[in-house]
Design a protein around this nucleic acid. Structure first.
Length: 290
DNA sequence: CAAGTGCCTTTATC
DNA sequence: AGATAAAGGCACT
């Protein structure tokens, strides 16, 4: 099936899948393959044409955020030259609407890891606890269900390379299972309310909660602050903070809870209701700027 | 090549 | 409250 993209509303499949918001996509030739909602989704983009197999149009549109009005969002977040430049370079990057459960586990596993290591962990988890699917003669694995991970032995999880995150994933899976936790209900809540719900899970701090809100639940005002965003702020936006504060966070590697909240609040106030888009553009901009 | 550093941080413990 | 240490392991330098 095909979707014809409106040239005035940009989309860049490569950037969207490469920018580090999702971890289970691979490109073979010009086609991207990923397992989404239990099926292998295959797609490629040629200019304004998005061609895909194994999903319907509405699903693809929703998953890739094709309904987001990017020109309008750009007009809202383009507050300065840095942001304008990031937008100019990566124009078609869109926030993906991931499955909330997969997103939650992914970002619990992502703490203090680099992207290749995160991909490795999630592949290991899916291979061990997910379901094997064959597609075009290749093996793919669905993401483990919460029921399966809730039952998983810590020993088995440890073999996936989770390290000290084993207990975070195990306990979160058990709690989600026990409480029949309804991720969909978070969508109706405010940003703050939904965040507080997510913070109840083990291994979920302010950063992980923001990532789940942004990448799975469509809370586009969420502004996750990781080491890269901290760098961006120190580099381009330090004048928005007291000198003393800047010196303090420059000196150490990790942020305290209050320091995180300060940077997070700055992002949301400064960039506004689409701060999440600003975050992802700045993140990718800074990471590719070396 | 070995050793050191850094990684889309959180939690436990002062 | 607020700072500090500890927690896999792997990729990169």
């Amino acid at each position: 099936m095909k979707i014809w993209l409106n040239p005035s509303c940009p989309f860049d499949l490569d950037v969207t899948l490469c920018c580090g918001q999702v971890f289970r996509w691979d490109k073979h030739g010009e086609w991207w393959y990923g397992v989404v909602e239990g099926k292998v989704l295959k797609l490629r983009q040629i200019g304004n044409e998005l061609e895909f197999e194994n999903a319907d149009v509405d699903f693809v549109k929703n998953y890739f955020g094709l309904n987001d009005d990017l020109p309008y969002i750009f007009s809202k977040i383009s507050k300065d030259e840095h942001m304008k430049q990031a937008v100019e370079i990566f124009k078609g990057l869109r926030i993906i609407r991931q499955n909330p459960w997969e997103c939650l586990v992914s970002y619990i596993c992502a703490t203090y890891k680099n992207i290749s290591a995160i991909k490795q962990i999630l592949f290991n988890l899916s291979k061990k606890f997910g379901e094997e699917i064959r597609f075009e003669g290749q093996k793919f694995y669905t993401f483990p269900t919460l029921e399966r991970l809730a039952k998983a032995a810590t020993q088995e999880l440890a073999h996936c390379g989770l390290g000290y995150r084993v207990n975070y994933v195990a306990e979160t899976a058990k709690l989600v299972h026990k409480n029949h936790f309804d991720f969909e209900s978070l969508r109706k809540m405010s940003y703050e309310e939904a965040k507080n719900e997510l913070l109840k899970f083990k291994g979920v701090g302010l950063k992980v909660a923001d990532c789940v809100l942004l990448f799975a639940l469509g809370k586009l005002e969420a502004f996750p602050v990781d080491v890269w965003i901290k760098r961006v702020i120190l580099k381009y936006y330090a004048n928005h903070f007291p000198k003393e504060f800047v010196r303090k966070i420059s000196g150490k590697k990790s942020l305290s809870k209050t320091e995180y909240k300060e940077l997070n609040l700055f992002g949301r106030k400064y960039f506004g209701e689409y701060a999440g888009y600003a975050q992802e553009y700045l993140y990718h901009y800074e990471r590719t700027r070396v």
